[in-house]
Simulated assay, not measured.
Amino acid sequence: MKIEGQAALVTGGASGLGEATARELARLGAKVAVLDRNAELAEKVAAEIGGVACACDITDTDSVNAALDKAEAAHGTARILMNVAGIGSAKRIVGKDGNPAPLEDFVRVVNINLVGSYNMARLFAARCAKLEALDNGEKGVMLFTASVAAFDGQVGQQAYSASKGGLVGMTLPMARDLAQHAIRVCTVAPGLFATPLLMELPEAVQQSLAASIPFPPRLGKPSEFAELACHIVTNGHLNGEVIRLDGALRMAPR
């Protein structure tokens, strides 16, 4: 699918990998809706790229539908969905105090990262499926953002790894399910990237993390994630695939 002129949605689009993706889509000529819980940051990014900002909680169906309605009113029904919103967590299942990890933390991470992404996908797909097919026969493209933690999660990452592993496991069956509607589905599993959250770590920690990556021995650039996300849109034979983007990194146990 050619990106130029298409309406696109980016969840988590106000910062980090989502912001980079929103900016790259806009650079390539897409009409971008920046969806994020942080309405103020979303407005800032949207203003800078000529898009529209939509306050959105991906776990809340009414909130998602309101965001989709606003984006649709501005740009038409979207053919591109970039699911980038998510949160992290690190809780040992048995803490140093001997107490079990709080169940609420596990539920919250899985609800946002996995259930929220599914909620966004189902509501987007239902609208996209009603569109006329493009010249190449497809109607839309959807991307999920997993993590290398889906495959080699570290100590304390049970909730995060489970949520990202769920996205990996959902990719192929969703691609098969949506084939009848001519909507492609792929997932990117990034490694260690220079996102605002990671950049808050001490410099020595950042350097240590970068040194653990075989090549190139540096943190990934958000722009590199965005480039791959946009390539998935333009490469019509990519479907049902999970792509690691990690510099050959395999995470150590801790």
Score class of each variant (00 low, 15 high):
Gly153Phe: 08
Phe106Arg: 09
Val141Thr: 14
Ala133Asp: 11
Asn136Met: 01
Val141Leu: 04
Ala101Arg: 12
Pro100Ile: 01
Ala150Arg: 08
Gly116Glu: 00
Met120Asn: 02
Glu132Cys: 02
Glu138Val: 04
Glu132Leu: 06
Leu131Cys: 10
Ala150His: 04
Asp152His: 15
Val148Met: 07
Ser117Val: 11
Arg108Tyr: 11
Asn136Pro: 04
Arg108Ala: 14
Ala121Glu: 05
Ala126Tyr: 13
Phe151Gly: 06
Ser147Gly: 06
Gly140Glu: 01
Val107Lys: 15
Cys128Gly: 07
Ala101Pro: 09
Glu132Lys: 14
Tyr118Gln: 08
Val148Asn: 00
Ala146Lys: 08
Met142Pro: 00
Ile112Asp: 03
Val109Ile: 14
Ala125Arg: 09
Asn136Asp: 15
Leu131Arg: 07
Ala129His: 04
Val148Glu: 01
Asn113Cys: 08
Leu131Asn: 09
Arg108Ile: 00
Ala101Ile: 11
Leu103Trp: 12
Ser117Met: 05
Val115Cys: 03
Asp152Phe: 12
Leu114Arg: 04
Thr145Trp: 08
Gly137Ala: 10
Leu123Met: 09
Asp135Gly: 10
Leu131Asp: 03
Tyr118Phe: 15
Leu114Tyr: 07
Val107Met: 12
Arg122Ser: 15
Gly140Lys: 07
Tyr118Lys: 06
Ala121Gly: 11
Leu123Lys: 12
Phe144Tyr: 14
Lys139Glu: 02
Tyr118Ala: 14
Arg122Ala: 13
Ala121Trp: 10
Asn119His: 12
Ser117Arg: 00
Thr145Lys: 06
Glu138Ser: 10
Asn119Val: 10
Val115Thr: 14
Cys128His: 03
Tyr118Trp: 14
Ser147Ala: 05
Ser147Glu: 00
Asp135Arg: 08
Asp152Arg: 15
Glu104Pro: 11
Arg127Phe: 02
Glu104Leu: 13
Asp152Lys: 15
Ile112Pro: 05
Lys139Asn: 04
Asn136Gln: 00
Gly140Leu: 04
Pro100Glu: 03
Asn136Thr: 07
Leu134His: 13
Arg127Leu: 05
